[in-house]
Amino acid sequence: MNWRHQLTVNKRKTVMILLSFFVLYFLLGAFVAILFQPYTTQSWWTILLTPQSRWIVMIFLLVSLMIVLTAVFFGGKLSLAGTKAVRVTEDSEDLRAKQLYNIVEEMKIAAGLRYMPAIYIMPVGYMNAFASGWHEKNAVLAVTRPLLEALNREELQAVIAHEISHIRHQDTRVMTLVSVLASVLVMMIDIIFRSVLYSKPRRGRRNDASGLLVIVIMVIRILLPILTAFMVMYVSRKREFLADAGCVALTRNNLGLASALRKIHQGHTMHEKDVQEAYEQTPNESVRSLAYIYSPRKSGIRNFLNVHEWFSTHPPLKERLEALGVKDGEDAS
């Protein structure tokens, strides 16, 4: 399986995710329409045909369209939310930042991409890197400050090549869609959940029926994160192996990535408490957790509030090193 194959797979997945998202919003709209209908004696499909219901469903579909458009145009920027990330440009004064820019440009040339991704440095307390964005044009590539400080040029090059491979394979497209859509969906349900919880019972609606509705909404509130977790699972773990392979194909060097991955792993295990705190203090981690080069879970750092982490999204370090042709435990040169 080469990366061109992965590209077609990702295109198919994008369509599937979009379709399932629109269907979900249609169902959500239909559900709200039934919720606001005062007459409970009607069967549900006749309720859906009333003009008021049609409006509600239309509005929900429009909202879903707007969310998708937001993900397409601002998905990359959204994934930086809450990190106070600093943009790196060609004229950056800082030598390390300039080097980062140069490395990204080198890898862009090696991968034959047409546009430079927007590069950011995140001033946070852990070592990680990610890429996101719908298109090459609005792609975002971010590394954290500790990562930039700890890796040498060769290792940094390997990490960047890994991220550029994600952009090249259009993994970023699938990941951005999934993380943006899933978070917005959970937010929407929360809004409906609260509006039903705190609203006074309407006139003309029987009390037992509204009690039933609250239960239904609560069930949805519990089921939906699981559903989004399945969406996340759909983004296969293979993408990391393929990006690792893409990195080796671009840099013609497997030791750089191996030693970079080991350093990142050590950075997580050696100061586990500090790193865990750093992850907890950074807002909106769930938007990025899928895209990270190294999942903090692999060193035992967990956050059960994050639905993405219920399932393994990244392959174990040992398997990745083996796929790179490096035995675990062997010293990196």
Binding site: N102, E105, E106, M107, I109, R153
Partner: peptide, 10 residues
């Protein structure tokens, strides 16, 4: 260093 890399990558 970077330009030399860019050259070999291109």
């Amino acid at each position: 260093v970077s330009t030399e890399n860019k050259l070999s990558f291109s």
